[in-house]
Computed example of a mutant assay.
Amino acid sequence: MTDTFVALSDPTRRLLLDRLSAEGGLTLSDLSEDLPMTRQAVAKHLAVLEAAELVASERDGRCKRHYLNPMPLAKMARRWLGRFEDVPMNAMAGFAGARVSRPESRL
């Protein structure tokens, strides 16, 4: 799970995931298009995403096509966000108005 958070921490990697989400099966050249970095830099970002299992790749002749793997994101959402789905809003109402307890002064 740590690899997932590390991979998602970079805006370029999130952009690559967005592109793969919109259209899977993109090559390195496709993903590098319109980015202000070299293809080698994009390849390094893809390697981080593959290590985190957020991207799956397959060979298509001489090309390597990349696809979004949504499973790690779904697991993360279930584990970290799912617990808050059933929280009643009235349980959180008192949170904003909670008083800060101050230590009594000794005289």
Rank of each mutant, 00 (worst) to 15 (best):
R99M: 12
A93K: 11
S105R: 14
D30N: 14
D3C: 08
T38K: 02
A7M: 10
T12N: 12
V48A: 13
A77S: 05
T2A: 10
N69V: 05
K75G: 07
R59G: 00
D3K: 12
C63W: 11
S101L: 03
K75Q: 15
D3G: 11
Y67R: 01
Q40H: 06
E23Q: 07
A98Y: 04
V6W: 00
E33I: 10
L17W: 09
E104A: 13
R19Q: 02
L20F: 03
R14Q: 15
R19L: 00
P11W: 07
K75V: 13
K44Q: 11
F95E: 13
A47L: 13
K75F: 09
S29D: 11
M1Y: 01
R79E: 12
E104Q: 08
V6S: 09
S32F: 09
T12P: 03
K75W: 12
R106Q: 09
S29G: 12
P88T: 13
A52E: 05
M37C: 06
D86S: 14
T2N: 09
A51N: 00
T4F: 11
E58L: 04
F5D: 09
V100K: 07
H45W: 08
Q40F: 02
D86I: 00
D86H: 11
V42T: 01
S105W: 12
S21P: 00
H66Y: 09
L8Q: 00
V55D: 00
L16H: 07
R59T: 05
E33D: 14
P72H: 11
R99H: 12
A41T: 08
P70Q: 14
L73F: 03
F5G: 07
G25T: 04
G97T: 14
T12H: 15
L31P: 06
A22E: 06
F5V: 06
M76S: 11
A74R: 09
G24F: 03
A51Y: 01
A96H: 09
L17I: 05
R106W: 04
L54A: 01
R14G: 08
S32P: 04
R78D: 05
L35E: 13
R19D: 04
M37S: 08
G25P: 14
G24N: 07
R19W: 00
G25N: 07
A22V: 01
A77R: 06
P70H: 13
A7D: 09
S101N: 05
R59N: 02
G82C: 15
V55S: 02
V100Q: 10
S101V: 03
V6R: 13
L35K: 08
R62I: 15
L20C: 01
M71K: 06
A7T: 07
T2E: 13
S105Y: 09
V6T: 11
C63N: 12
T4E: 13
G82F: 14
R13D: 04
H45Y: 11
A43M: 08
A56N: 11
S101M: 03
L68F: 02
